[in-house]
């Protein structure tokens, strides 16, 4: 059990405000946060999806609701969370296949994830919300 003793001597820094995450680290924690937020809002999103499809009357209700600027901004935020989770997830699938695992590529691909997910958010937001 020699390795257990070594493990205990490892220094730990869990003082979150002093940790400066590199971009791939920010991508990673955002991947988790976006997943959690989307999970928590599933009932709201399912309800909205149901309203939009059930009948012309409920569609009008959904349309009026999403016409509210505050609701629009929240939905835009959710589209970004989805797109971030989507793009970061594809990056992780590639990492699983040992594509781009060196530091330089990993940093570059995390920049690409942020760029592409924000671009997709703008495109989808413009198409669906505005």
């Amino acid at each position: 059990m020699a390795d257990i003793a070594i493990k205990k001597k490892r220094p730990k820094n869990l003082d979150l405000p002093t940790i400066r995450l590199p971009l791939p680290g920010i991508l990673s924690i955002l991947h988790r946060i976006s997943g959690a937020v989307l999970f928590l809002l599933l009932p709201v999103l399912l309800w909205l999806f149901q309203q939009s499809l059930a009948s012309p009357e409920t569609y009008a209700v959904a349309k009026a609701l999403t016409g509210n600027i505050l609701v629009k901004l929240i939905l835009l935020g959710l589209i970004w969370l989805y797109m971030h989770h989507f793009c970061a997830g594809i990056r992780y699938l590639l990492l699983d296949l040992h594509k781009g695992i060196d530091l330089e590529s990993a940093r570059l691909s995390s920049k690409i994830v942020f760029g592409v997910s924000i671009a997709l958010t703008v495109i989808v937001g413009a198409k669906v919300l505005w």
Partner: peptide
């Protein structure tokens, strides 16, 4: 994840091609 990614691309392409403008199209 792969199933959802493929579906997302199909839906994005459909939205882009159709551009639904009302209840029936949606």
């Amino acid at each position: 994840a792969v199933v959802m990614a493929v579906y997302t691309l199909i839906l994005l392409a459909t939205l882009g091609a159709l551009g639904p403008s009302g209840f029936e199209a949606w």
